[in-house]
Every structure is written in structure tokens, then in C-alpha cells.
Amino acid sequence: MKFVRPYIFQAYLTCPREAWLEYHGLISDQEHEFLALGRLVHESSYQRARKEIMVDNLLKIDLFRDELVAEVKKSSRHKEAAKLQLAFYLYYLKHEKGLILSGLLLFPKERKTEKVELKPELEAEIEKLLQEMLPVLTAEKPPPPVKSKFCRTCSFQEMCWG
């Protein structure tokens, strides 16, 4: 099974075009205010617990907390995509490293957490999504832009809507 970077996996869930652009090495506006805010939240939250770990030069795990793989997010606005991204980490760790772990989504600004377990139905959803996204990502041209509620805060907004 071919794996993609977790950011691309999560981006595909909200916008296949954004995922295609990232997959093909196009860099979004790195000075975009929402990216900068996300970096700030990430860097300033859980500093004492921070134990960023890189796995196979693919996964960048934010931290481990009580034997849980933890992922820090700016907000719960993309909660379902964040949950699937974390499930993707757990799936990868299980299938590539033989590690059966649970996960924890952390939304520090909202003081929320959510536990994520890689149950068979979630694992099947990850496999289905990987099979669905790989042809889209490897296509010669990006999917056409589709207006959504996420466009307003997207760092690729200029590229899609000029």
C-alpha cells in the first residue's frame, strides 16, 4: 500500500484540489494568517510535553501523552478531517511498525480533547480513502476548484480563485 504525507491525507478530506497541489509540490502562501496562527498554537501549546517524533520521514507525531499518539490542532473546525488524519497515523504505525496505539486530538485554544481508537470500521475507512485518493493525487491535472466554506481560510485561495 502506498502512503501519502498525513497533511495531504487531511487536505484531501476537505479539498482534493488542495491535496493535489501539495502532492505535486506546489507551496501555498506560507505567510497566510491562518497558517501562521496554526504554527503559533502548535509551537506554544504543550511545550513541556513536546516530544515531536518523525517516523520514516513521513509522519511527524506532535507528542506522546500517556502512551497515546497526540495531534495538536488549532481548532476543531476540521475535527472530522483531523480525526481521520490521526487515525491514518495509527493505521500506519500498526501496518508499518507493528504498533497498536490509540490517539488523542488536542485543541488547546478550545480546551478540548478527543480520544481516537483505530477500530475495524475506522481502519476500513482509512483504506477506502487511500484507494480513492491515490488516483486523484497522481492525475496529470488537479481537480477543478469547488467553492466551499473552507476556501475563505485556505492558503491556496489565490491559486484557485485569483
Rank of each mutant, 00 (worst) to 15 (best):
W161V: 09
C160F: 10
Y7N: 14
L40E: 11
Y46G: 02
K2D: 11
E22H: 11
F88N: 08
R152Y: 12
L118A: 07
L58F: 09
C151R: 13
K147G: 00
L134F: 02
D62W: 08
E80S: 09
L84K: 14
L63Y: 02
L58K: 02
R111E: 14
L21Y: 06
K97S: 10
L58A: 07
E96K: 12
S44E: 15
M54T: 15
E52G: 10
F88A: 05
F9Q: 03
N57H: 09
P142K: 08
K119N: 14
I100L: 15
E43M: 04
K60Y: 07
D56A: 06
E125R: 15
E125F: 01
M1C: 00
V116A: 06
P143I: 04
E71A: 01
E117A: 11
C151M: 07
L93W: 05
F3C: 03
G103N: 12
L26H: 12
W20N: 06
K74H: 09
V4H: 00
K119R: 15
L35K: 15
K79F: 07
Q30F: 07
T113C: 03
E110P: 12
P145C: 11
M159L: 10
P6T: 06
R48G: 11
H95N: 15
H32L: 04
C15K: 04
A70S: 13
L35P: 03
E114N: 03
K147D: 13
E121W: 10
K60I: 04
T14I: 14
H24Q: 13
A139I: 09
S44W: 02
A124G: 00
K94P: 03
E96S: 07
G25S: 02
A70P: 02
S148N: 15
R5S: 10
A70R: 01
E140Y: 02
L59M: 07
R152T: 13
E96A: 04
T14D: 13
L90G: 06
S148Q: 13
D62V: 00
R17T: 09
C151F: 08
L59S: 01
P120W: 07
P108A: 03
Y23A: 08
F3D: 09
I100G: 05
K119L: 14
K112S: 09
A82Y: 03
K115F: 07
P120E: 03
L40A: 13
S76E: 10
V4L: 08
A70L: 00
P120Q: 10
T153C: 05
M54E: 15
L90R: 02
P142Q: 09
Y12N: 10
F34L: 06
V69L: 02
D29M: 01
E140W: 09
D66Q: 13
S28N: 13
E121C: 04
K60M: 10
P6H: 11
E121H: 14
R50M: 05
S44T: 15
P142H: 11
L93S: 06
A81G: 09
G25T: 05
